[in-house]
Simulated assay, not measured.
Amino acid sequence: MSTAAGLHEAPLKDPVLVAATLGTGLMAGLYLAFDVAVMPALARREDERFVAAMRRANDALDDNAAFGTLFLGVFMATGVAARRLARADRSDAARQARAAAVLYGLSVVVTICANLPLNRRLRTAPGTSAAALAAARKAYERPWRRANAVRTAACLGALALLGDTARRRAAVRTR
């Protein structure tokens, strides 16, 4: 087996690490899309359209089993990958995977403690008057964006660690 072929084949021998890496990338991409596209586009909309769009987006994600499975499955896969690496006596790789699990875990905690409560408050915000919608938006937009930026950074950090772990595993297997 050539080195180039080995670099492409070896990471696939650890499907849990691959799943953790790909899932983390998907979650980072989702959060980043909100940071760089969705929220800036909605920021230019009037309060009524902003609130309505965020309510619809949040409802779509809340009712989506695939999203929930990915959201929690990534955390579990990263932890399992770290444990498997530790059992295989790959302490450096296990350490990186544990750090990735901590970073991804931070994104889970931020989601549960910040984003979801903000989403619920926006969903149940009383009133349809311009003043009520402006107040709901003001209480939501900036804190939600800050929390989302934290989740994005945490997921990107976890992705970098998992990608490096997979790369290193591939390099070791081809020697």
Rank of each mutant, 00 (worst) to 15 (best):
V38W: 01
V38G: 00
V38I: 08
M39N: 08
M39W: 03
M39C: 06
L42C: 11
A43L: 12
A43Q: 12
R44G: 10
R44V: 10
R44H: 13
R45I: 05
D47C: 09
D47I: 10
D47Q: 12
E48S: 14
E48I: 08
E48G: 11
R49G: 07
F50V: 10
F50R: 08
F50W: 15
A52Q: 09
A52W: 08
A53F: 07
A53H: 03
R55E: 09
R55H: 12
R56N: 13
R56G: 11
A57K: 05
N58K: 02
D59A: 15
D59Q: 14
A60H: 08
L61Q: 07
D62E: 13
D62F: 13
D62C: 04
N64E: 09
N64R: 04
N64F: 11
A66F: 11
A66S: 10
A66T: 07
G68R: 06
G68I: 01
T69V: 06
L70Y: 03
L70F: 03
L70Q: 02
F71R: 07
L72E: 07
L72A: 13
L72I: 10
L72D: 06
G73I: 02
G73M: 04
G73V: 02
G73H: 03
G73D: 02
G73Y: 02
V74Y: 00
M76R: 06
A77E: 03
A77H: 02
T78L: 01
T78Y: 01
G79R: 06
V80L: 07
V80H: 02
V80E: 02
A81F: 01
A81I: 00
A81H: 01
A82P: 02
R83G: 06
R83D: 12
R83P: 00
R84G: 04
R84L: 13
R84D: 15
R84I: 04
R84Y: 04
L85P: 00
A86I: 07
A86H: 13
R87F: 03
A88F: 02
A88W: 03
A88M: 04
D89R: 14
S91R: 15
S91W: 08
D92V: 11
D92T: 11
D92H: 04
A93E: 08
A93G: 06
A93I: 01
A94V: 08
A94M: 08
R95H: 09
R95T: 12
Q96G: 03
Q96N: 10
A97I: 07
A97R: 00
R98S: 04
R98P: 00
A99G: 05
A101C: 10
V102P: 00
